[in-house]
Design a protein around this nucleic acid. Structure first.
Lengths: 347, 347
DNA sequence: GCAACGATTGACAGCGCTGTCAATAAGAAA
DNA sequence: TTTCTTATTGACAGCGCTGTCAATCGTTGC
């Protein structure tokens, strides 16, 4: 195996100093065009690539970005995180950075220690929910002036954030169900510690109110953003009192649970019960019936988050821009007008 | 912001040389117990953590492992890759390594250049299928003596590999369908360039043969491991000749496509058509009806792959162990005995 | 003509640690 | 007693690059 070419080799072949080679590769100003071309030619001849470890150490930067998220159960994959990761990976590449994936546990007593260690190993962080809504995490960020961007509806002064207009999206979905004629619309709330759960609930309530439909607490159940809690909530909502003709679950796995409960309890979907989800994961697309849901602009979120972080890293600024992106209601086969006589599916 | 403590600070406080501190943190032999304790105490007092960039540069190692996989469509998440990633991430942590995620494109003309660059930035690679079955990639591995572990059924001399006993698993699934009484069993093949596609097919044929059921090429359709190709293959298999009473698809997304096609063509599942998948992704669990499928031991694969790579990295050996793990058939609601009179579902 | 400024390049210390080799003390064997 | 071996520790060059500062040349303004 050949020794890997270094900056000294390139400088020798190009007939310039190693500092000039460094300037060329770092796009520094004040290098003549012919000098730059000479250096690039030498580098190409030698198949030279800068040694990242050396760059890191000499510049006191790592060229790594840490994506940090809550991972309560490593055995379960989370489509939302995976999609954000995919988008961030590509965006980081465009800036010459690598993305490091860091699952943590919100309930771990070592959470702040882990974040501290991580922060030393990366130039900046992308913090996903629900982490970005945890007080201790935000305190860590401000006390250490951590270069980061947070995906959260809750701004933090001096730090950029990206969010989706969850109130508007949930309002629009609820409006859709109302326009179909539904007046008893069940709502399954997401995890109480996630900021977006409250926004989705707020949107649901706003649309009800705007349409003169009274809010009924009996139509609301508390889920945990997973299939099993969605299933349990649906079983409860479909078992008591004045039954809903539609159920809006705060994410797709919970909506899948609603579909299963409806089936077991012989509520035909969408004939007797309309079901809506949130996120537009593959689950939603491949479900039977295919799920009406809210699509988040994941690629835009990931790109914008990365760009905000790069702004901060490259300009040393204290960017505190807050971007709120619009989501889109996707109509599929799981929602329809309520049947003239609401009741159980007949076998 | 305080300056971060260095090895000099720890050496000063502990009253030893920096080399001794280095020995302690690298678990070198020949350090007295009380010396080691003194150093750890000083390090803890100072909240010292080794500077990874410096370690990388001084040792000519990066303490990074690259997970490299084919990603034809960055907009689509792949449950298998995500699960392997999750397991590898945890396993690497146990060895003090970080995992770098690297999607590439098998059809890109720059594939080998990208692998070359990546190989300079990590200490070793975990190569997933179908990459690990590409001749040019394996040539790159052997020509450069790349430290790696491949997930592949095809061994490469001098390099470790991990695989799942796909022949046996597919054999067992087909046996299950045969034991239910099915004799016309459709088979949807996976992507022709993935090694495991052929093994799954081989298992299917072996079980037929062992049970004296003649292989009928008209019962086989070529899919591409995705929902759409599964849907199209099912539509074809259910439209012509002597119809199958069961369809075994080589992965879960394709099996989901079979469910959709069956529904549209009014084949009740499992009453008139049994459907089986492979992989046991969340799709399988949450499908309606829930899918009978093959579960791969993903956590074991990831851990074993990482351990093999660590063996090679830490012992400089040329490990070439080949591990073949057993998969498990998971019975769910999508398979049942064929109805006494095979035919279309009634309304 | 002289001084000031800007463009361009180069020398080199040092980032924080590891690998290599030397030094020393203590114990065992001849 | 002398020599050899082992355990333990320390000195220091250097990994490949960047930041800082100096040097030099050419141009412009007075």
């Amino acid at each position: 195996m050949l020794r890997r070419p270094t900056i000294d080799d390139v400088a020798g072949l190009a007939g310039v100093s190693i500092k000039t080679v460094s300037r060329v590769f770092n796009r520094a100003p004040n290098v003549r065009r012919e000098t730059r071309e000479k250096v690039f030619a030498a580098a190409e001849t030698l198949h030279y690539q800068p040694n990242l470890s050396a760059r890191q150490l000499a510049s006191n930067r790592t060229f790594l970005v840490g994506l940090v998220y809550d991972d309560p159960d490593p055995e379960t994959t989370n489509d939302y995180v995976t999609a954000i990761q995919s988008g961030s990976l590509l965006a980081c590449r465009d800036y010459g950075y690598h993305l490091l994936i860091n699952p943590v546990s919100v309930s771990s007593p070592k959470l702040i220690d882990e974040l501290t260690a991580l922060n030393r190993q990366v130039d900046g962080l992308i913090v996903l929910q629900p982490l970005s809504d945890v007080r201790a995490v935000n305190q860590f960020i401000t006390e250490n002036d951590v270069a980061c961007v947070r995906l959260s509806q809750r701004p933090l002064s001096g730090y950029a954030s990206i969010s989706v207009a969850d109130v508007e999206a949930a309002d629009e979905m609820t409006e859709h169900l109302l326009s179909l004629g539904h007046r008893r619309i069940g709502f399954i709330m997401g995890h109480p510690e996630h900021g977006q759960s409250h926004d989705r609930m707020a949107g649901y309530r706003r649309a009800l109110e705007r349409n003169g439909v009274p809010f009924d607490p009996k139509l609301v159940a508390q889920g945990l953003f997973d299939y099993d809690s969605g299933y349990a909530c649906a079983r409860r909502l479909l078992s008591q009192g004045d039954l809903p003709t539609a159920i809006f679950a705060s994410n797709d796995p919970m909506a899948m649970g609603v579909l299963s409960a409806a089936r077991e309890m012989e509520f035909d979907v969408p004939g007797k019960l309309s079901v809506a989800g949130f996120d537009d994961s593959p689950l939603a697309r491949h479900a039977y019936p295919s799920l009406t849901t809210v699509r988040q602009p994941i690629a835009s979120i990931a790109r914008l988050a990365t760009e905000e972080l790069m702004q901060r890293l490259q300009n040393g600024g204290s960017g505190d821009a807050n971007h709120c992106l619009k989501a889109e209601v996707i109509l599929r086969a799981s929602t329809a007008a309520p049947s003239p006589q609401a009741g159980h599916a007949s076998s």
